[in-house]
């Protein structure tokens, strides 16, 4: 079974974000980066299927040169090789152009399964996986929280998370694409042996022209204008001081207002 996992590198969750001077993006110089959270679950699910069925796990990443760190980590965890789409015209794309780029790289691989995370922690489009399925002519299931495969790998049965605590199982033939929800498994850490072995694993660097992607395909259909910190709509009373002081202030406010 050949499985392609799309992994995006995003700013670390705990990092303090600062909007850049021209208000078009965040100041990346002060940030550290990591694999998008739901993508790490997607990778783990792929590695488990490889352990069951044999085959190959290929990582596909669209991102600047420093995304190689995240790719290395995925290889250290057990992915066999990677495709790194790394080229100026491939940076800062919207969901449609991103999916188009991924489709150009992944299509020729003819995988049995493609996994993406549910959505990215930075732009949060939550569309790339479904767009990619449509562009490659594959069926998909989104927001997958459990997965079963037939012995021969010809069909998958996926448990989808719906809203308000509802779930649904759906089945489809492979090849197919699944968008993976966080919590589907417990992602592994890379072993020391894995980290050493990752250095020898192939990373195929691709430019836009390698992928046959012209300016038209890479034109974003939505334009991000100005970025800003949301204006507080609620009058929040910030309680300040040491722990005992804020605790006393909070408890007295809650009591005075008849809340407790």
């Amino acid at each position: 079974m050949k499985i392609v996992v799309c992994i995006k590198q995003v700013p670390r969750r705990d990092d303090l974000l600062r909007i850049n001077a021209d208000k078009t993006w965040v100041d990346e110089a002060s940030l550290s980066f990591e694999a998008n959270e739901s993508d790490t679950y997607a990778l783990e699910e792929a590695l488990r299927l490889k352990e069951k069925h044999g085959g190959e796990v290929v990582v596909a990443t669209l991102g600047a040169a420093d995304a190689s760190k995240t790719i290395k980590e995925a290889l250290a965890k057990g992915a066999d090789r990677a495709i790194h789409m790394c080229d100026a015209p491939l940076v800062g794309l919207d969901a449609v152009a991103t999916a188009r780029s991924l489709a150009a790289a992944i299509g020729p691989e003819s995988p049995d399964l493609i996994f993406t995370g549910l959505q990215s922690d930075d732009l949060g489009y939550g569309q790339t996986g479904v767009l990619l399925a449509e562009m490659l002519g594959l069926p998909h299931a989104s927001i997958v929280i459990a997965l079963e495969t037939s012995e021969d790998g010809a069909t998958v049965r996926a448990k989808r998370e719906l809203e308000n605590g509802w779930f649904q199982w759906v089945s489809m033939k492979t090849p197919a694409l699944l968008t993976i929800q966080s919590g589907i498994n417990k992602p592994r850490y890379a072993s020391l042996k894995g980290i050493m072995g990752a250095k020898k694993k192939p990373v195929d660097m691709k430019t836009a022209s390698d992928l046959g992607l012209g300016a038209d395909a890479l034109t974003s259909r939505e334009a991000i204008g100005t970025l800003y910190i949301p204006v507080r709509e609620k009058q929040t009373e910030m309680l300040e001081g040491d722990a005992d002081t804020v605790a006393a202030a909070l408890v007295s406010r809650l009591r005075d207002n008849g809340i407790i």
Binding site: E233, K234, T236, M238, A243, D244, A247, L250, V251
Partner: peptide, 30 residues
Amino acid sequence: KDKEAPIFDLADFGVVGDLFEVVPAIIKKL
């Protein structure tokens, strides 16, 4: 602990601080 956390946009009362210090103090006060 993060004063920029979006949860403060919704809160009526906000405490920027270490929950491991603040929560025990609240319990004690209650």
